[in-house]
Amino acid sequence: MTHGSTPAQQSPYTNNGGRPRSYDVPTWRKVAYYGGAVLQGIGLLMFLSVFVAVFAAFAGIGDVFGSGDHTAIGSGIGRAFRFFPVAFFGFFVISAGQWLRRVGRQGLAGSGVVLSPQGEARDAEPWRRSEGAQDQMRLEEIPTLQAALGGAPGPTGSPAEVVKLRCRSCGYLETEDAAFCSQCGQRI
């Protein structure tokens, strides 16, 4: 078994399938995501329409979304129950909107529509690159944090060099600002 990678075994992260790397999400995924949100809103309105119709019937508002007799509450409730198929269909529209948003957010391979590990890596690339950029920003802040905590970095970005002196009596390494050895107590 060889440890070298052949072009067929390369990681999908190495060359991005021949496409340029990008932080941006493709337009079709944005359309799918926001279109799914619109479908969810429409489905929610369809689902809630039955509750509005039943409330209107019980409140005695009269004719519920139709023409007819305004006096009988029973007929208003009967008309309100006609909205149950619309509410049931609204539930399916909400589910379709959620699925469409997931495809828009994760891509075809990332959401499981297409079974492709390389495609899944490409679909997740904008978020992975964004997370990497955030990690890089955190790493760049470390010298600033060290300076704030008192360990100011040197000119190369590494911490300042610490000089130690050896005690003539016991040989203990002591910091250069010490007047007495912390091991034996003799003057440095």
Rank of each mutant, 00 (worst) to 15 (best):
G4Q: 12
T6M: 06
P7W: 06
A8H: 06
Q10S: 13
Q10A: 14
P12L: 03
P12T: 06
Y13A: 12
Y13D: 11
Y13N: 04
N16A: 14
G17F: 08
G18T: 09
P20W: 06
S22G: 07
S22I: 01
V25Y: 00
W28N: 09
W28D: 13
R29K: 13
R29S: 05
V31K: 11
A32S: 15
Y34V: 10
G36W: 01
A37E: 03
L39C: 09
Q40I: 12
Q40G: 14
G41P: 00
I42E: 04
I42Y: 10
G43Y: 08
M46Y: 03
F47Y: 10
F47S: 02
S49V: 02
V50H: 06
V50D: 03
V52H: 00
V54Q: 10
V54N: 00
F55N: 09
A56F: 02
A59D: 08
G60R: 04
G60Q: 03
G62H: 04
S67P: 00
S67R: 06
G68D: 04
D69G: 00
D69Y: 00
H70P: 15
G76I: 02
G76R: 08
G76K: 03
G78F: 08
R79W: 06
A80P: 03
A80S: 11
F83N: 01
V86E: 00
G90D: 07
F91L: 15
F91T: 14
I94M: 15
S95Y: 04
W99T: 12
W99K: 13
R101L: 00
V103H: 04
G104A: 05
R105S: 14
G107D: 03
G107M: 07
L108Y: 14
S111M: 08
G112P: 04
V114L: 09
V114Q: 04
L115G: 02
G119V: 07
G119P: 01
A121Y: 01
R122N: 06
R122Q: 13
D123K: 03
D123R: 05
D123L: 01
E125V: 03
E125W: 09
W127M: 10
W127N: 03
S130C: 02
E131V: 07
Q136N: 14
Q136H: 13
M137T: 09
R138G: 07
R138T: 08
L139D: 13
L139H: 11
E140M: 11
E141S: 10
E141L: 12
I142W: 02
T144D: 09
T144G: 12
L145P: 05
Q146W: 13
Q146S: 11
G151M: 11
A152N: 10
P153H: 09
T156W: 02
T156Q: 12
A160H: 05
E161P: 11
V162R: 15
V163M: 00
V163C: 01
K164R: 15
K164A: 10
L165H: 14
R166E: 14
R168K: 13
S169T: 14
S169H: 13
G171D: 08
G171I: 07
T175K: 07
E176M: 01
A178F: 05
F180Y: 14
Q186G: 08
